[in-house]
Write a protein that binds this DNA or RNA. Structure first.
Lengths: 214, 214
DNA sequence: CAGCAGACTAAACGCTCGTTCAATCGCCTG
DNA sequence: CAGGCGATTGAACGAGCGTTTAGTCTGCTG
């Protein structure tokens, strides 16, 4: 290990973890302090207030997430030519590639998107803009049509993607597998691609065209 | 009006409204009492505790929702023959048909589904079972294929439907129209049906086949 | 008409919350 | 080595919470 995290970072990480699971309204400063192994006063000393801590965690999470997304927009590498790979760029795969299992980040982002805060709205607008760009790219490459209402189609593709991790726990309950795990994505991805490729009536033969990659 | 609501019902309805918007953890007994025009003590007198009130509102909301759903499962009327109508049976349309505008019920159900409670899990399992039955019906009538993984396909169709009202506010923000309003559904429904009918590459001509009903 | 039962209120209780404050510790600087 | 400064703590404060309690009012019942 290069160097230990500062106490400030420990508090921030424990707050992130607890906020993601239980929500910032329910988690108390004393719980965060105990989890970080410090006194409640020190939390306020470092972050000015509980709300200041929440804002800093918000900013931290968004920054980390933006870093993950920059892979999708920044790299204009050769893999852009693979149409099915482009369509398969779900948030689930992004998480799986960048985060360790059990990371609290997806849960925190979920809360943020559902929270009716300016940070949440900004995050959603950002994702929507990305979705619109992706749809445009797909349309130009001929991989997908813009549809009769491109704004709605882009929104539809986005929220379909988001629903997987908004309802992650519920899906794990009924399917018996975490849809954001490697095993879960292996089942979810092909089914989604099948519908996107040919609709609900696509024949199984037609679906074999998208099963190639590992 | 046939008869006035009892004070007990007024308290329950105000709690439902406040819980739907702000969440049960944030709303206080005093807020509910003020909204209902009574004293805090009376709330506890009628419902034993705040948690008792929350449980009763849970049960009430689920009961009302089940009543709305019974239209879909109970009636085996002539409209079942219309394939596109069957595919279009979204929760949004159910809400639009049964609830007044501004009803707090969708918001409350949203909280319930995301809440990690037994009531929420039961509700989701119920919806998942309905989705599986619907997919089976569609498959037998030839309107849709079961897909390579019917369990995942049914879950996918369900969460795609749920995502519209989980992210209702965010969608209203970027689209400028409430997706659960009549105007919003008029834009959302055709786009979704288009994808379900032929995938992302369906030609506009093929989409005209599903634009008939008002 | 006596009396009971339920609806309802005002006040208070105990608790936990976020936050403050004074004091201590350890380290770097001059 | 003197001195200051940030990190850290334990105790305390005031506010707001859910809940309790004692009491009043009202309408029904015998």
């Amino acid at each position: 290990m290069p160097e230990d995290r500062t106490t400030r970072a420990v508090i921030r990480d424990e707050a992130l973890r607890l906020f993601a699971v239980h929500g910032p309204d329910v988690v108390t400063v004393r719980q965060i302090a105990t989890a970080a192994g410090v006194s409640p006063g020190l939390v306020v000393h470092h972050f000015r207030s509980k709300d200041g801590l929440r804002q800093e965690v918000d900013q931290y999470v968004i920054t980390v997430f933006e870093g993950m997304l920059s892979e999708l927009t920044g790299e204009s590498g050769p893999e852009l030519l693979d149409e099915s790979a482009a369509a398969a760029r779900s948030l689930g795969e992004v998480f799986l590639r960048h985060l360790p299992v059990g990371s609290p980040l997806p849960g925190y982002l979920r809360r943020l998107l559902l929270s009716d805060t300016e940070a949440g709205r900004g995050l959603f607008r950002r994702l929507y803009a990305m979705s619109r760009e992706t749809l445009d790219d797909l349309a130009e490459s001929g991989a997908a049509a813009r549809g009769g209402d491109p704004q709605v189609r882009a929104a539809l593709l986005l929220v379909n993607d988001l629903s997987v991790f908004l309802l992650r726990d519920q899906l794990t309950g009924v399917l018996g597998v975490d849809p954001l795990s490697a095993a879960g994505l292996a089942r979810w991805g092909p089914e989604l691609l099948s519908i996107y490729a040919g609709g609900l009536n696509a024949t199984p033969q037609a679906q074999q065209a998208e099963g190639g990659q590992a």
